[in-house]
Amino acid sequence: MNVMTIRSRFFLLALSLAGMLASGWATANDIAREVRAGRDQAASYDGGFLELGLVVEVFSNPLMGLSEEDNGVDIGIALNGEYQWRGLFVEANTESERGLVLGYNLARGERWLLDIIGSNQHDEISEDMDDRLEGLRDRELDFMLGLRSTHYFGSNIFQLEWMRDISDRHEGVAVNASLGKFWQVRNWNVHAILTYRHKSARVMEYYVGVREDEVTDRFSAYSPGAGHISGLEVGITLPLSEKWILRSTAQYFALSDAMSESPLATEDAGGRLLTSVTRVFN
C-alpha cells in the first residue's frame, strides 16, 4: 500500500551528528556530492556549505525492514553539506542516503584524493520498522572504517572505497566502486553515477542471512555468500536563486542473487525518486 508518511528526520539527523546516521543499502554514495558539484580536480579548502530543505521521496525497497512499507512516498528533511578543516572533513548527504561521513584527507594530487573515512554503511533491519520481521533478530546499523580513493578525469570521477566494520556488528568488508559524470545543460546541472557495491559474506550473513534459531513459517534458514548491488543514479540540479536550489534524483539498484534469494527480499531490484528544494548556506 502506498501511503503518505510524513515524519520528521530530525531524530535521524541528530544521530548523524553523533556519527551514526542510518544509511541505505543500495545508494550510499559520496561521489554524488562530487559529481553534482561538477568538480574536475581535487579541491581542498577550509570551510564548507550546508543545504537544508525538504525532500519528497518515492521509494521501492526490495528488502523487508528498511522502511515501514516496501513502496511509498515520504516527505523529509534534506540535509546536504560538507565542512573541511585542515584535512579533517565531515560530509552529509541525505539524498544519497550515506548520511554522515567523517574523514581525514591523507594525501592528494592534482586530480586524486586519498581519504580515510568512517561511515555507517548498512541500515537497521528490525521488527520495529516492519511487523513481518516478527521473530527475527534485529540487524543493527553498522559503522565502517576504511579508505576512499577519488580520481578526476575531466568531467568524470571514479571513486573506490574499501571499508571494514568496526562496530562489532558483523566484522565484514564492503568495497564500493563508483563512476560519475557531470554535464551542464544551460543552467541545469546533470549527473549520472554507476555504482557497484560488493559486500562480504559476513555482511550478507548478518543482514540478509537467516540463522537456524530464527527460522519461522515465513523465514527459512538462509546462509548467503558474498553479494553485490549494482546501481545507476541520474539527477538534475537547478539553481532557483543565489540561495535556493531544486534537485531531482532517480536511483535504480539491482540486487545480486545472493541478496535477492534471501527470505528478507521482496524484489530483486528497487529504486527511489527524490525531489528536493533546499536553502544553501555558504
Binding site: 558539484a37 580536480q41 581535487a42 579541491a43 581542498s44 579548502y45 570551510g47 556549505f49 584535512g87 581525514y104 584527507n105 591523507l106 594525501a107 592528494r108 594530487g109 592534482e110 539553481p239 543565489e242 540561495k243 535556493w244 536550489i245 544553501v280 555558504n282
Partner: peptide, 13 residues
C-alpha cells in the same frame, strides 16, 4: 549558488 573553492598548495599529509 556555490562559490569556487580555493585550492591549497599540494601536500602530503
Amino acid at each position: 549558488v556555490h562559490r569556487a573553492r580555493q585550492r591549497k598548495r599540494l601536500n602530503w599529509r
